[in-house]
Design a protein around this nucleic acid. Structure first.
Lengths: 209, 209
DNA sequence: AGCGTTTTGGATCGGCCGATCCAATCAAGT
DNA sequence: ACTTGATTGGATCGGCCGATCCAAAACGCT
């Protein structure tokens, strides 16, 4: 956020936004390296000078896309994760994720996951952005699990930090396999297995139910 | 394996192999789209005519790389997964995976996972190859879990099919997050959580141990 | 209305991309 | 040794890549 000039007028902001949205969509569909600056220009209906006015170079555009997609993904999950205080809420989140992917016919997977896989080794700053994004995601889940434990729904030994991280990795792995197999099963089984594990960490009810 | 001409002489086979190894290494480091045919030529010490003599075009080369990496990954795992008949063996496999990634400083992740993420949406045939590769991997794990169940180490309700798939997704998700965070924790927590879940499915021992 | 700044159009650049071509060389069987 | 086909060297092509540049237009402010 340093070298490219930030738009000061309303129209400038709109143009920058249009470029960002076009780039995000294309890079999600075709990957970062598979998307040319010309592609973005065409999709956004914008000239060279416009694009390079708001983004110093392709790398700067990529990093803006990473920030954009990270915020989108977290914003989509936040409503369901904010009130993650019961196993029902956990299942509702699972259903939400499964439905989103099913609606997309298992194309694309997780925007953050795809970007991470492509950029982690080649763009240290993008990698750091994504690591921070995943950490925010993890924190949302962890706070929910902590609430469940504090409310006495989970045993004291249940570790919300580890379970939150395991849930997030299960989600990412499930998404990748579902994207590869074009099928819901891996995502479903992956999340359900983790949910079953968490279920097994409930406090034993006084009666034998 | 239809359009490109297969090498008939010893030297031809060696050249093709050299190209394949160079392409696999580069595409693992920089991604498929990030690796140019010229890069491969340079790395393999080979001319245009040589490369295009053995591979019809870049797409054919990519698909050969997918097959090559798939076989490598499965061959690396096979020794440990073939005798997957106890929780100890499962832990040995976990240790192996963790050590390999640690030795690589968490660069690169899983070759199959990276290829899947990049190619699943853009190259249907590569996607299919990878789906089959993951299926073979899954089968290895599943057979081990079945053996454990049949030997009475796991409860009858434990479902080896689902557990095998969940283990594979946990591995892939853990690898992705570890690659992003440049840290062993996600991979470790992801696999350990699944192992703990499987441990909780052991047959209850007669005594209270 | 007039001024300074932001925003835009669009031509242009050098370099790399994937791919093709022809001719020369090498290997293997007889 | 000779022949046939496999293998190789290397020049070359058109097109796209990321990026730069200058001048014109639009904007915001007084």
């Amino acid at each position: 956020m340093s070298s490219e000039s930030m738009p000061l007028t309303r129209k400038g902001r709109a143009t920058r936004e249009r470029i960002l949205e076009a780039a995000s969509a294309l890079m999600f569909e075709r990957g970062v390296a598979g998307t040319s600056v010309d592609d973005v220009k065409r999709e956004a209906g914008v000239s060279s000078s416009q694009l390079y006015h708001y983004f110093a170079d392709k790398q700067a555009l990529v990093r803006a896309v990473v920030a954009y997609q990270t915020d989108l993904v977290l914003a989509a999950n936040e409503p369901l994760l904010a009130r993650l205080d019961s196993l029902e809420a956990l299942r509702a989140w699972r259903d939400f994720v499964v439905e989103v992917q099913t609606a997309a016919d298992f194309f694309g997977g997780c925007p953050m996951g795809s970007l991470a896989s492509e950029l982690a080794d080649s763009d240290p700053q993008a990698r750091e952005q994504l690591a921070l994004g995943f950490a925010r995601w993890e924190t949302m889940i962890r706070d929910g699990l902590r609430a469940m434990r504090d409310r006495g729904e989970l045993r004291a030994e249940a570790d919300p930090d580890r379970l939150a991280l395991a849930l997030l990795t299960a989600l990412q792995g499930g998404l990748l396999l579902s994207q590869t197999r074009r099928e819901v099963t891996p995502l479903q089984v992956s999340l359900d297995t983790m949910l079953e594990h968490i279920t097994s960490l409930r406090v034993p009810s006084p009666s034998g139910t």
